[in-house]
């Protein structure tokens, strides 16, 4: 069995989805933790220090390459699997199977993922591109990321888009978290019950943590 055979089999492709998914879940924890500095109520000093470190230190910059690789693998593999799965049934049913045994969000991972991807593009263009392009060698003067957030989140529509993006992410995680562990082989009932509980809690906490950031700026809860 070659590595290629392993990772191109249907189970192998799922393993890639699972490993990258768990990696991205870990990233969300770091991202939420760092962004929580906006609530330090110090005019963004701590937050900007964090942003400066992430952009100017070599370690997070190298890790960032791995992060992008994780995102790309997860996204490309997901679309390839979705296309392949759709092709497995060329004639559909007249009466659809519906909700028996499965949740709507578990059947809509591709749709939810696409919404998260669109949100991600908007999100990167709001913060990551302007921030990174002004850090180090490109466009000189580093921007004040806290002030940028304040400005971006003064627009109600942007806040609504961010909240919808966070809700999609929450549902994506509600299935993705526990599914990822099933894929790497967690079949014991007691672990599965525990991971399902952690998964649902994590989805809600992450969704609320990220959604509260634009809401806090819009409502003036951060200073």
């Amino acid at each position: 069995m070659t590595w290629k055979q392993m990772f191109t089999s249907s189970v192998g492709k799922k393993l890639v989805m699972s490993f990258t998914g768990i990696f991205l879940i870990l990233f969300l924890i770091v991202h939420a933790g760092l962004n929580a500095c906006i609530w330090a109520m110090d005019g963004g000093v701590m937050f900007n220090q964090g942003a400066h470190f992430m952009g100017n230190n070599v370690v997070p910059r190298i890790l960032e390459i791995g992060l992008f690789a994780g995102f790309i693998l997860h996204i490309v593999q997901a679309y390839m699997l979705t296309i392949q799965n759709r092709k497995a049934r060329s004639v559909g049913y007249a009466v659809s199977y519906g909700n028996a045994g499965s949740k709507w969000y578990s059947r809509s991972m591709a749709l939810l993922g696409t919404i998260v991807l669109l949100f991600l593009i908007i999100h990167l263009s709001h913060f990551w591109f302007p921030n990174r392009s002004h850090q180090g060698f490109l466009l000189g003067e580093e921007i004040n990321l806290f002030d940028t957030m304040k400005e971006v989140f003064s627009n109600l529509w942007v806040v609504i888009v961010y909240v919808l993006g966070c809700i999609s992410l929450g549902y994506h995680l509600a299935h993705g978290f526990q599914s990822a562990f099933k894929t790497i082989g967690v079949h014991n009932k007691r672990y599965h019950a525990m991971l399902s509980g952690i998964g649902y809690t994590f989805s809600i906490v992450i969704m609320l943590a990220f959604a509260m950031m634009p809401i806090s700026f819009y409502c003036g809860w951060v200073s």
């Binding site: 189970v11 192998g12 392949q84 299935h175 099933k182 967690v186 079949h187």
Partner: peptide, 29 residues
């Protein structure tokens, strides 16, 4: 197609085969 762990199979199975077998298969693989 590939499994996405939705659980529809387990709900329809006339012999009530548990979906935890799929996780066991993944581990075996």
């Amino acid at each position: 197609g590939s499994c996405t762990n939705t659980g529809a199979c387990e709900a329809t199975c006339p012999k009530e085969i548990s979906i935890s077998n799929i996780a066991r298969l993944n581990q075996e693989y």
